[in-house]
Design a protein around this nucleic acid. Structure first.
Lengths: 242, 242
DNA sequence: CCAAATTTAATAGTAATACTATCAAATAAT
DNA sequence: ATTATTTGATAGTATTACTATTAAATTTGG
């Protein structure tokens, strides 16, 4: 009984530590003023998600956003230097949210294999319901990440921005999946590449099934998740068992 | 002897058919005027490759290109509607060139496994030497494809442009690799997804090793090719043997 | 090889984008 | 209630992404 209580206490403390680290905390160099700190900031975030989803990143402008929220273009510049920084903010928020899902939902699983399977599921499935956070629509944000995330790092400024930590959350998430892979099969030679490929590849397969359906096996029935689960099973789990 | 001659004749005719289909022929809706048809057109292509490589696609403009080739901005618009179309042209050229490499270099291989291995090598390795085509630098073009290709399809116009056949060469190349996969292991459930993932994933891994080296196992010694070869060996070749 | 047709260069101009600056009005904090 | 901060409104700049026009240069066909 005492052992049980001690374990519970340990688990609780462990969870608290994790949850603290997992708060959606975005590098404050990404914004000029924290959009979470005001009503206007939250409206900027909320409506920018809707507008980028509808118009695409190229057609989206601060002027249009200003009109949509009945605020002024110049006010938006007080929160974000430019739309690139806003995209970095939104995608960082998304990866942070996904990391939170990953850690929370794998925490209670003890089997490394089941942990890995759950992890792959979380990181490759489509987001279908808008949960918890009031002003942020995760369903749309998932679609934005599929269509726009690569534009945030395929720039000439990537090395500088990487140094400034703008991609830290994304990279940490890749490393978490890598750790799950290594835990099942320590002898696999390319755990980091596999992890980064699963996360990026899932975005790509989701894109393909919507737009280039001829070059993917994924569709409404066969999900990217089932493809990547099969992949991981063959490469990591089955070989890990041997 | 006669049999041998007949075979040679058949092989030659087969090669001719293939080479005809493989001529770098780009959908003529991509350009206003064929850049191959004039000296100015070739200079536009040659220098746009150098400029996009140096400046990145966002900073590259027709005005700057005009200045670089000592020609006029308006003259460039007679060849390409806008820089997006120019990017489509360059990347189509690249995929066509790669397809040519793929078909030519796998043609003489009879073993399906060796064919697949060679195919994966061709489609995942870095381009290191500028061959054959006078005014097009394939080494730079490969780097442009790594850094910019996804921008050509991650747009709101993708479905329309896809219907117009702007991505046909790329998709055909994915299908060719898929065919190589199926030839080795017909029971693998996701040959198209694996093929598209290898081609896109190789670009991604090349990017990561240059800019986010922490989340890939690839580097100067461990190439993306060795990673993808191992993948294909485990998923397709070993299981195909069983 | 000369005239006609085509291509290219030069210039100008437009609408939109991506900002910056200024200042007044509204709101919140002490 | 006063002060500080935030927001809104207006204006302005440099650059981009084009289009239009016309003259000069080049190519081509008879």
């Amino acid at each position: 009984m005492i052992v049980l209580l001690l374990n519970l206490a340990r688990i609780r403390s462990y969870m608290e530590t994790l949850l603290k680290n997992l708060k959606v905390e975005i590098n404050d160099k990404i914004y000029v003023k924290d959009p979470e700190s005001s009503d206007l900031g939250k409206r900027i975030v909320k409506h920018s998600i809707e507008m980028i989803y509808e118009l695409g990143f190229e057609q989206f402008t601060f002027k249009k956003l200003g009109a949509a929220i009945k605020s002024n273009e110049s006010s938006i510049y007080r929160y974000f230097e430019n739309k690139h920084k806003l995209l970095l903010y939104l995608t960082s928020w998304y990866w942070s949210w996904l990391e939170y899902q990953l850690v929370l939902q794998t925490m209670i699983i003890t089997s490394p294999q089941d942990k890995l399977i759950k992890g792959v599921e979380i990181l490759t499935q489509e987001v279908t319901q808008d949960s918890s956070f009031s002003h942020i629509n995760e369903v749309l944000l998932n679609k934005i990440v599929i269509a726009e995330y690569s534009k945030s790092y395929l720039t000439k400024e990537v090395d500088k921005e990487n140094k400034d930590g703008y991609f830290a959350i994304y990279k940490r998430l890749v490393m978490r999946l890598k750790d799950l892979i290594v835990a099942v099969n320590g002898s696999y030679k390319f755990p980091s590449s596999l992890s980064s490929m699963i996360i990026d590849g899932a975005l790509h397969q989701h894109f393909l099934k919507e737009h280039f359906s001829g070059i993917t096996d994924c569709n409404k029935k066969i999900t990217p998740t089932s493809y990547f689960l099969d992949l991981v099973e063959q490469l990591i789990i089955n070989n890990g068992k041997k």
